[in-house]
Design a protein around this nucleic acid. Sequence first.
DNA 1: TCGAACGTTGCTATA
DNA 2: TTATAGCAACGTTCG
Length: 503
Amino acid sequence: MTKRSIHWFRKGLRLHDNPALLAACENAVDVKPIFILDPWFASSARVGVNRWRFLIQTLQNLDQSLKNTILGTFVTCCKGYPRRSFPELFKQWETTHLTFEFDIEPYAKVRDAAVKALAEKSGVEVMTCVSNTLYDTDKVIKANGGNPPLTYQRLQTVLSKMGAPPKPVEGPKEIKTKIAANHDTEYGVPTMADLGKDDSECGPLLFPGGESEGLKRLDTMMKKQYYYYSLYYLYNWVCKFEKPKTEPNTLSPSTTVLSPYLKFGCVSARTFYHDVQNVYRQNKNHTQPPTSLLGQLFWREFYYVIASVSPNFDKMEGNPICTQVDWDDNKEYLNAWREGKTGYPFIDAIMIQLKTEGWIHHLARHAVACFLTRGDLWCHWEEGMNVFEEWLLDADWCLNAGNWMWLSASAFFHQYFRVYSPIVFGKKTDKDGNYIRKYLPQLKHFPTQYIYEPWTAPLKVQEKAGCVTEKRKTESSEDGTPKKRRKTEGKNSKITDFVKKSK
DNA sequence: TCGAACGTTGCTATA
DNA sequence: TTATAGCAACGTTCG
């Protein structure tokens, strides 16, 4: 039998560690690597211009890697709903095999099941591989007795029983394909303009998309060294990494910024994992999960495993792991937060960085998420999640929802009285407010003494600094105590109520 | 079955 | 300077 394959790229936009792509290539006379611009994503307002740019660059890079280096083929980009596109493609290309990476997202599950059924109807053999996560999430759940581990420690226990995640596989050596004459015009990688997006709305290009950029960044981070306490001892930065000790408000990132590359699968989590292990082997002493760099990959795994089986994971209602809270519906507060106009310079600077650059430090995410929800504004975490989904380069469905539940103390984290102060928290790592001065240039000349609380400066000082503050858009408790108390009952009492009623 | 322990990264007051 | 209690809308795990 003559094997003619389609490898369907969705996430996993890479050649390295892509087992489904390898499977497509094996003994095939023709392989079509395709990416489908799904209108479900394209029509969604929740992809900001910066992430569109990242995706386009990633596709261009993939196209180039396939075209110019070893493989002599193209990424074919199609527009349309996958379930409508595939039957025609199967016929046109006389396809016998379809391969793609396994995905746990609800939309993907439905989409993939539909495509699988279509393929089988057309006599096309389907093969999927797990390569987005370190482990097969179903196997993790099985190893935990059929339920997802709801605490990090529990996950660690389960993973330690499972051993190391699989080693990454090599990229394909050769892809055979026949290129259609109309390839570039009909099936080439689209530009921003093709998608109706305005390049000029993008922020500065700090993190270009693509596998090449991702692997380069990974390599740089793995080799990063620094002098620790002394000019004589060089340490591997990776071995000393402790997340809580990295700073949210430095002028250049204090962490790896590999997250956008993991989100799109430009860099394989398994490649990342085994690279870190290689660095660890060179140094006896290194930090440990959950705060270590490897620990961060386990956090990703944590949310993927739980999200893979939790109903309504990205919503409060109908979500059995989420505490039901009577959040306010305050559009004014939400808008002020979104647009960086709360009146708290630390909060506003973070939101401006997010909007313009598409990446903010993990602890900066904590500060603004806590502020929007349980800390101060009492807005719904889903609203914050939606804003992050639009603006973050690394917006990853389950990580985003999971972290918003965490920060709003709706799931996983419950010590509601641990509230980040919009004034004090930033001061600890940026006493002079240089981060604020960068993202809020209107405060550039404000005296350091008042920069975290400009409304406390005497009017004369404000005038001299060239910025007179308005009344704050939002009010805050400011002292690290939650502003409000929950009106509704916790998850368990809710369930008890339900049981009582049904009896 | 139930209670104790404790949970990736808060803040303030007090000793 | 550093350690600790207290906050008092908590929930999961484990013995």
